[in-house]
Design a protein around this nucleic acid. Sequence first.
DNA 1: CGCTCAAGTGACAGTCGCTGTCAAAAGCGA
DNA 2: TCGCTTTTGACAGCGACTGTCACTTGAGCG
Lengths: 208, 208
Amino acid sequence: MTDLGQEIGLRHRKRAAAMARIQDVALDLFDEHGYERVTVEQIADASDVSPSSVYRYFGSKEQIVLLGEFEFDTSAARLEDDADGSPLDVTRRMLRAVMDHLVGDEERTRRQMRHVMSDPALEAALARQVYAASETLGEVFAERLSRSANDLEVQVLAHVVVGALLGGLHHWQGTAFAEPLRDVLDRCLDLLERGLQIDGAVSRAASP
Amino acid sequence: MTDLGQEIGLRHRKRAAAMARIQDVALDLFDEHGYERVTVEQIADASDVSPSSVYRYFGSKEQIVLLGEFEFDTSAARLEDDADGSPLDVTRRMLRAVMDHLVGDEERTRRQMRHVMSDPALEAALARQVYAASETLGEVFAERLSRSANDLEVQVLAHVVVGALLGGLHHWQGTAFAEPLRDVLDRCLDLLERGLQIDGAVSRAASP
DNA sequence: CGCTCAAGTGACAGTCGCTGTCAAAAGCGA
DNA sequence: TCGCTTTTGACAGCGACTGTCACTTGAGCG
């Protein structure tokens, strides 16, 4: 009965609990039968809520898996915008915030990724989500560099950064999630900082 | 009656004609009412085919807009694999092939992009398609560089290249498609070749 | 406490994208 | 012209998703 220190209102607590329960139940069902062979109605039944509520909470079946995942939080960049740095530094900081959100149970992230990578609908949803992150990142970069958000270089930079991270995600999945995700993504940004000079990969004209 | 030199069989010709007609009719309807407010049944009726045929031809409603668009054709790279070059050179070559396919009527591409950028479902489909292109590109790069297709640097490079192009696409849309798409994408690859050294954008440690 | 109001929930009906099946139609070769 | 194969359209059905509406249930207040 004493305030446990974080939540306000029984309503919000029940809602949060229900969402967590639905996600758990859904992931279990997906693990067992595969994403597309499980209906929202089954998830709802097994979670003791109505299908209506599932859609109210998550909006779509895909978001049961992807909700909140891989979204850049601009506040992480804006809050510290006194501490300046290059866009890549900013990215690292934002990424760290995202990772802290994820790193709690990387096992869950692995389960999610397994389904995402094997189902077209989920893959599309993730791609779109990541794509949206590029826009967010672009706006942050534009502000930092005092350029238009639609500047070609800003857009390319933002999409390149996100692309690099996506490449890392892909690699991570290809190695059966062996290495901690955080390390993989860090190395991706390192590669970008070095300008992708992968022995003649980008330009052969570098050395005569 | 004389052979007009390209098509074989009445069947294939009718099929191709029907697909082209469906796409035209669909784009018109989309322009007028918006993508999601037009049903496949309406498109089918207006095109004098059955809904079944629309799905047989295009597989999904999204593909009526996106079919064949933005797909890298690996054959373009493999065919000329005697002529070697850096991965970026290969990309340019593949991109040129893609562009030649598109440049026929860039006006149509603009119409498509307008819808793609404003509808979530289409945006997701495009994102997924582009994402798939990264995998294709990764395989080509891996072969060129004699590395594993799952190599982190290969994956990052492939996704970065595609990301750069996506950034260009985004910029193109943001400028109301002013410049020819070909030029925009060329400049994206130029930026990559220069290593994204956008006045301290990537790394501030470059100059002390 | 208990009352009132607003917010949240579940049941229902309906739309639409998409899939599978099957008989009819149409191209193709002889 | 006559079979054979492929393609087509009609139909039935599934499941994701939306909107509506009565009902329940926390929240605020006397």
